[in-house]
């Protein structure tokens, strides 16, 4: 199986820096240190900005995020949700997006998993990718879909990596599907299963 070099990759998501734009409504979704992005943006936004906004914050590390939570609560946003995991927050995000009007801008900040899964949810709700902004904070761990069994392995930090489902050793390609919110994993040693390359920790 080919192992293309990074420079040629165009399906790899590119993350930028959040920058509020003209819109009728603003939705912020963040996890852990991604919450700091919202707080730093808030400093340069008008006081009434969050009247027309919703904040969904995922706190997976309650010991260290208390100051972020205090800051978010102080923004005076009438629709503030704080939940324990990405999976728990997604139904809330979907319901909110379904009720919104055109002209909603969505801002995502946080881990690779949060960015991928919230993007997938927003696209399922009919939002265009242009209505989404992303900023990466925290973990680089990837979601990887095994091309063979189709199972998705969460929090992949090594190259290659084991498929949690079928057990094949996967080369994690820099080929990314927004619909699956996952990178593609392809068996690395199919031609010679006795050749087992060492795992390197590269996505942590």
């Amino acid at each position: 199986m080919s192992q293309p070099d990074d420079s040629a990759i165009l399906s790899r998501p590119r993350y930028g820096t959040l920058s509020p734009v003209e819109a009728n409504f603003h939705v912020f979704v963040a996890d852990d240190s991604g919450g700091e992005t919202i707080l730093s943006l808030a400093q340069s936004l008008p006081d009434d900005f969050f009247n027309n906004a919703e904040i969904i914050y995922v706190n997976t590390d309650s010991e260290n995020n208390q100051s972020v939570i205090d800051g978010l609560e102080a923004l005076g946003c009438p629709r503030l949700y704080i939940g324990p995991s990405i999976a728990a927050a997604l139904p809330r995000l979907r319901t909110s997006l379904d009720r919104m009007r055109m002209g909603t801008q969505v801002y995502l900040s946080g881990s690779e998993s949060l960015l991928g899964m919230a993007t997938m949810t927003a696209m399922e709700a009919g939002l265009d990718h242009q209505a989404l902004q992303t900023e990466h904070r925290g973990s680089l761990a990837r979601r990887v879909q095994c091309v063979h069994c189709k199972g998705i392995t969460e929090n992949v930090t090594t190259q290659p990596a084991d498929c949690d489902h079928c057990g094949l050793l996967l080369f994690v390609r820099d080929h990314y599907s927004r619909r699956a919110a996952a990178f593609q994993g392809v068996n690395i040693n199919a031609e010679d299963p006795s050749d087992v390359p060492a795992k390197e920790e590269i996505y942590s």
Binding site: M1, V147, H148, L168, V186, N187, A190, D192
Partner: peptide, 11 residues
């Protein structure tokens, strides 16, 4: 690619 682990050895 789905079946690469099956036909790959033939390479």
């Amino acid at each position: 690619p789905e079946n690469y682990h099956i036909w790959g050895p033939e390479n």
